[in-house]
Amino acid sequence: MGEARVHISGFRMDFGDTTVVRDLSFDVQAGETFGFLGSNGSGKTTTIRALLGIYEPTAGILHINGRDFKPEHGDRLGYLPEERGLYKKEKVIDIMTYFGRLKGMERRTAKRWSLEYLDRVALADRATAVLDKLSSGQQQKVQLGVTIMNNPELLILDEPTKGFDPVNRRLLMDIIAEQKQGGATVVMVTHQMEEVERLCDRVILLKDGTAEAYGTIDEVQNKYGGRIIRIRHTGPLPRSPHYEVMLEETNYSELSITDATDEAVILKDLIDAGVTVRSFTTTKISLEDIFIRVYGDQNKPSTSGSAGAAGSGGPAASRPRQGV
């Protein structure tokens, strides 16, 4: 692909005595949509802040368009921070126009663009309302509008779906897809793995402050064996070097194949071991499965971290939620 829009190498970040990110390196190519994944507290927001010059990195190179990011360079950046917030006591249209102006738009263009955007997201009648009179979901929409003003060439979205209901999440995804279509490079932090699978060209998984996996979605899936077996059965499953048991309930289990062994071989092994198999399906491993495999041990006793929800879907929904 072309030039690197974002280039990070050897990035390290210490807060006091704690090292939050260590030796992190990755590139985001111009025009691609990049998933920046990792459990809570793994250092995603910290990396983005250091990239944007909000934090001073302890070490490493963090470049946008080949140099340190500075607002005055005029790179067209659209940044949706994890900590949302705009001027609460001002009118929606004034806030949007102000940011449009700061991003280099003419006052009239900024105002017209804002009104069109508000109309699109069903907030046309709130243009002259003071921001804190809007619901938090509506405020999110305003902030998203500010983020995509003036056609950003690089969009950095830190948990964009946070605070959106399913309908508005759809709208958000449409808008991201549009930006991508228009040529924008998108870096997205999200816990919605299905959306990552749908939208992202490449991903990085951050664990303990460094890259656990990095590449196209196929590459990452292959790294983790690439295949999942879901079986309905009776009788305990035997252990095997060919797979890892990801989930084991009385009558339902999920196995992740860890080498190139054919599924048929595994099925035969199971039957030989006396397991009654009532159904047996192989699917490609989902990012969600990988996520849980990578971070699943995080909330086991003696480790801390807050639990959250990770996407949704199928039988997976029944398993205990792991830290995300």
Partner: peptide, 17 residues
């Protein structure tokens, strides 16, 4: 303080000097 209390700082710092 308003930028800080209302979390506008990140938007502002990445938009202007």
């Amino acid at each position: 303080l308003e930028e800080k209390e209302n979390r506008v700082t990140e938007m502002i710092l990445t938009t202007l000097k």
